[in-house]
Every structure is written in C-alpha cells, then in structure tokens.
Computed example of a mutant assay.
Amino acid sequence: MQTVLLAAGEGTRMRPLTAHTPKPMLPVADRPLCAHTADAAIAAGTDELILVIGYEADAVREYFGEEYRGIPVKYATQDQQLGTAHAVRAAREHLDDDFAVLYGDDLYDPASIQELFENAPGITAYRAENPSNYGVLDTDGERVVGVTEKPDSPETNLVSAGACVLPGEAREWLDVEQSERGEYELTDVLDRVFAEYEVSYTELDRWMGVGRPWELLEANEWKLAALDGRVDGDVSERAELRGPVVVEEGAHVEPGVVVEGPALIRAGAHVGPNAYVRGATLLGEGVRVGNGVEIKNSVVMAGTHVPHLSYVGDSVLGRDVNFGANTTVANLRHDDSPVNQTVKGDRVSTGRRKYGVVVGDGTKTGVHTTLYPGVVLDAGTRTEPDETVARDR
C-alpha cells in the first residue's frame, strides 16, 4: 500500500499562523499536524509515503527527509492548489498499485485507518451533527454507491471524511473536468470507483479537520490528552507537576512553578520561576515563560517569550513572539456568548465560550498591553505600552 499525503496547502483560513509555515506543519503536541496522519498510515501498514507539497515545501522536506520512521518518502509538487484530484494527479508518476489518499490537515483515529487499509477499496465515514455541511454518503448496505454534496435534507448523518483507498486503476481516472468551483475534485474520481468497484466504508471513531486557529487548539487538546507524563528535563524540587506532564530533555522548570497537565514542555523551553501552566498547553522549543506568568489551554510556538506577570488563556501564539511585561489576554466575553473571530474577512463564531487571541510570528507587544477576545495580530505586529487592542491588526 502506498499513501498519498496531501500537504501542499497554505491554509489561508489559518492566517496569520501560516505566514511562514504551511498549515500541515503547524504543531500538534509533539509533532507537526501532518505527522500524526503519516504515523497513522505507517501504523496501518503503508509501504511508502508520497507527500504532495507546495507552499513552503522545504519545511515538509526537512522534517520527513527521504525516510521517515523506516518508511521511504517521495515527494510530488503541486505548484497551484487546484483541487484534490489535481493534488493526487501530481503524485501519479510515483503510484504503482492500490493507494491511499489522506489529508495532511485532518486528524484520524489510527485504528480506523488500519481498518480502512484492510478493507480496500474503501472510504472513511463519520457521523456528523450537521450533515448538510458535508458530502453525505449514499449507501446500499455496506457498500457506498455515491456521495451527495451538502444536501438540504440529508437522509442520514453518515458523511464522507475524505480519506480513502483507491484501486490502482484510478490512477488513469484523475484527469477529471473542472467543477463549478473551478477545481479538479477527487469526488469525481470516486464516482467512477463507486460505479466499477464494491466500495466499503470505514466509520471513524474520531475525526477532525483542522482549518482554523481554534481547531488547532482542539487538535492539541486531543493529542496532548493522549501523552503519558515523563520528565527528561530539569525540574526543580520546588516545582509541582500535576497530572500528565511531559518535560523534554533540555527543558528547565524553575522553583515555584505549577504545571497541571495535560501539558508538554518541549526541549529548550524555560518556565518560571513562580509560573502557572495549566490546561492542554503546548510550550514549543525554546519558549520562555517568565516570573509570575499564567498560561492556560494554549499553543505557544517555538522561540516565543512570555515574560513577567502576563496572562495568556485559550490562545495560539506563533513563532518568536515577544509579549511585553504584564501583557494580558482577555478570553471571555461579558455576555458569555461564544467568541467570534475574523476568518478571510468574515466574522465567524468559534463556538468557544473561552477563547483568547491569535498572534502571528514575530509580533511584539508593549508592556501593559491588553488584548480582547478573538483579536488577531498579524505577523510582525507591534503594540504600544499601555495599549488596549480591541480589533484585529
């Protein structure tokens, strides 16, 4: 079994976090998002990974190399992101026989991916709360016979989760016509597979697409909760670790620090003294958390500094951010409504009652800055001392 892993996209809905990093390479617990998918394919028995790359491709190549966990890796370049069939077509020259297609910005429970591989050809399915937002599977017993895109009145809540295993013959069916959206859709390839093969479906126990910043928080909540606590770094005897906490080799936790898991403190990070880290929190490589800081349920990416009496809650901070002393993130609306965020020009509900800010790489805040819930700071933003930021910048 070969696995085509789609990892070419920028992730415009994830901006500004993708200003310098492709969405599939954003951190989820101890590895990039797409590495969780690659690991699931390897656990399921894939013989080869074919990564379709495009935006910031070097980041993907550097991480996976020519061999990943003992499995050979090949690369195919998709210069323009013109749809899923277009992406798979970029990998066609590497395909020899049956092949899986997995999405580098989705998370799957690994056991279901193994079941998918064992029952090829097949497609993954999921029980959705709002099936009208997805492609709904048309089934005949255990067989899939079609997919109806976003029906107004779906007859079932069983929707397509995208991941699939296709017969080798499908390599020749990738030259589909452009859809109304102007893309080359893999669903058009699947229609022919449904017509010519008995296609099973594997119902996923858990699945999520990670397309927006608050979904990156949710992804980390999922994967951090699965970690077993361990201490390989330097933790003061006067620090307290509660629950599953991982302190990697080269990390330092100073006296007076309290860490409530699930939490991951990566290599080179330095926490404290007297800091409080709680919730599902990821502190990336080289992060600095200073005296009296509280960080709750957040993703803090590599090289970021949060010094001196600051509060960060339910937030995503990009790489090499520097918060001035006593920077405060507000993460709760006074009316208790879900926090909204602007995504590609539209105000969208995050669905989260507690949600802080999204901060792009290299941003710096002045001392005593206050950031309102749902605010997005673009990469390289600056704030002034004592400034209150209530709108995106």
Rank of each mutant, 00 (worst) to 15 (best):
L224C: 08
V245C: 08
V231R: 05
A225G: 10
V247H: 04
L224E: 04
V235R: 06
E249T: 12
A226I: 00
D232A: 13
V253P: 07
V231K: 01
A239D: 04
D234Q: 14
G250T: 13
A226W: 02
E237F: 02
E240M: 09
D232L: 13
K223E: 15
V247R: 03
G250K: 07
L224K: 06
V247F: 03
V235K: 07
H252V: 14
L241C: 07
L241Y: 07
V245Y: 05
G229W: 01
A239T: 03
A251V: 13
V231D: 04
K223M: 15
L227D: 05
K223V: 14
A239R: 08
A225V: 04
G250P: 15
G229Y: 00
G243M: 09
R238C: 00
E248G: 03
A239S: 11
P244E: 11
H252T: 13
R238W: 06
L227Y: 02
G233M: 04
L241Q: 01
D228C: 00
G229P: 01
E249F: 12
V247A: 04
V253S: 11
G229Q: 03
E254R: 15
D232T: 04
G233S: 09
G250Y: 15
L224G: 11
G233F: 06
R242I: 13
V245A: 10
A239Y: 09
V235C: 12
E249M: 05
V246Q: 02
V247D: 05
E237P: 15
L227K: 07
E248D: 11
V253H: 09
G243R: 10
G243I: 04
E248F: 11
V246H: 03
A239I: 06
H252E: 09
G229N: 10
E237M: 05
G243N: 12
E240G: 01
H252L: 14
E248W: 13
R238Q: 14
K223Q: 15
R230I: 01
R230H: 11
A225M: 05
V253G: 10
D234K: 10
R238L: 09
V253C: 08
E254P: 00
R242A: 06
K223W: 05
R238D: 13
G233L: 06
G250C: 12
D232G: 02
E249A: 14
V231W: 00
A239L: 11
A239G: 10
R242N: 06
L227P: 01
R238A: 07
E237Y: 00
V245N: 05
S236F: 05
E248C: 05
V231P: 08
V247Y: 06
L224V: 08
H252A: 06
A251W: 14
R230F: 00
E254S: 11
R242Q: 12
G233H: 06
G243H: 08
G250F: 13
P244Y: 07
V246F: 04
D228K: 12
G233C: 10
E254V: 00
E240Q: 08
H252G: 03
